[in-house]
C-alpha cells in the first residue's frame, strides 16, 4: 500500500519500509507495512490494542532483537541504509535512534547521571554539565529539577520522570526519537506538557509516536497511520496498516470506513 502524501514526503524521508512482515516464531504479528516517515515531523501510529503499532516502532531501532523468536521479512531503510543488513550493529542503531517508553523508566541513579548515561557510553569528552543542562532544558524540565540534579531520578513525579527520560534520549543527540505511548501512564496535565514539548522537539528531531489517545494524535502529529487487526481462522491476530496520510485527512476525511469508525470513537 502506497500512501498518497503528495509533495510533503518527497522532501526528506527518514524511514522507508518495504513490504514489512513481522514474526514471533511462526506467528505473524504484523503484515505488509509499506510506508515512508518524513524528516522533522511527528508521525503518529494509532489503532486498537494488539494491532502491532508498538511492534513496528520497535523495529525502527532494532529493540525487538532482544526477543529471541523475533524476525522480519521485507526491508526497513533508515536514510537509505538497510537497517537489518547483516553488518549493521543494533547497538549503533540505537545510539542514533532514541526511544522513550510507555512507562517512565529512569535508572535508580541521580538525575544528572541519568542524563549523562548515554553521552558517557559514547565517550563524550565535552562539557558534561553544559550538555546535561541543555538536554534538561530541551525537555522543559529545567525549572523543576535545577536545584536537585544530585537527587534520584526515581524520586520525581511520573510526568517529570517521563520528561527526564526524554531528556536522557535527547542527550545523545539522536536523529530520531521513537515514543511508545509516552503519555499512557501520565495524568492529563503532564500529558499536555509532554505534547507541548513534542512541538518544540520536532524542529530538530524526527518523531514517531505510538498513542492510544486520539486527541493526542490529532493535536500533535503531522502524519497519522491507522493500524487495525485481523484474526485468521486459527485465531491468530495479525496487524496491518489501514490508512496512512496527513493527520487532518485521517481525522476529517478518511478514505476507509474502519478509519472513520475508529477516529469517531465507534470502536477500539
Amino acid at each position: 500500500m502506497t500512501p498518497n502524501l503528495e509533495s510533503a514526503l518527497q522532501t526528506d524521508t527518514v524511514f522507508r519500509t518495504d513490504n514489512l512482515d513481522i514474526y514471533y516464531g511462526s506467528f505473524k504479528a504484523v503484515r505488509d507495512v509499506t510506508m515512508e516517515i518524513p524528516k522533522n515531523a511527528i508521525t503518529a501510529f494509532i489503532g486498537p490494542s494488539g494491532c502491532g503499532k508498538s511492534t513496528v516502532i520497535r523495529c525502527f531501532n532494532r529493540l525487538n532483537d532482544l526477543i529471541k523468536s523475533f524476525h522480519i521479512d521485507g526491508k526497513i531503510f533508515y536514510k537509505g541504509q538497510d537497517l537489518y543488513a547483516s553488518d549493521v550493529d543494533p547497538v549503533e542503531v540505537r545510539r542514533q535512534i532514541g526511544m522513550v517508553f510507555q512507562k517512565p523508566n529512569p535508572f535508580p541513579k541521580s538525575i544528572y547521571d541519568n542524563i549523562a548515561f548515554g553521552p558517557r557510553l559514547l565517550g563524550y569528552k565535552g562539557d558534561m554539565d553544559e550538555l546535561v543542562e541543555r538536554s534538561i532544558k530541551s525537555a522543559a524540565l529545567w525549572d523543576d529539577v535545577k536545584d536537585k540534579l544530585k537527587s534520584l531520578g526515581t524520586d520525581l513525579s511520573g510526568g517529570q520522570q517521563q520528561r527526564l527520560c526524554i531528556a536522557r534520549a535527547i542527550a545523545v543527540q539522536p536523529d530520531v526519537i521513537l515514543m511508545d505511548e509516552p503519555c499512557a501512564a501520565l495524568d492529563p496535565i503532564s500529558t499536555l506538557k509532554v505534547e507541548d514539548l513534542l512541538q518544540e522537539l520536532k524542529e530538530n528531531y524526527t518523531i514517531v509516536i505510538v498513542t492510544h489517545n486520539m486527541q493526542q494524535a490529532s493535536r500533535s502529529s503531522d502524519y497519522t497511520a491507522f493500524f487495525n487487526v485481523q484474526a485468521n481462522e486459527k485465531g491468530q491476530r495479525t496487524g496491518y496498516i489501514v490508512e496512512y496520510d496527513r493527520t487532518e485527512v485521517i481525522f476529517q476525511s478518511p478514505k476507509h470506513k474502519a478509519t472513520q469508525e475508529y477516529v469517531s470513537g465507534r470502536f477500539g
Binding site: 529493540l63 542503531v93 540505537r94 517508553f101 523508566n105 535508580p108 557510553l121 545523545v172
Partner: peptide, 23 residues
C-alpha cells in the same frame, strides 16, 4: 524497563550489565 532503557540508549549487553543491571 531499565534494561530496555539502557538498550534504547545504545548500550551494548555488557555496558547494560555493568552500568545498570549489576548496580
Amino acid at each position: 524497563e531499565l534494561r530496555q532503557a539502557a538498550y534504547g540508549l545504545g548500550a551494548s549487553r555488557w555496558e547494560t550489565l555493568f552500568r545498570v543491571i549489576i548496580p
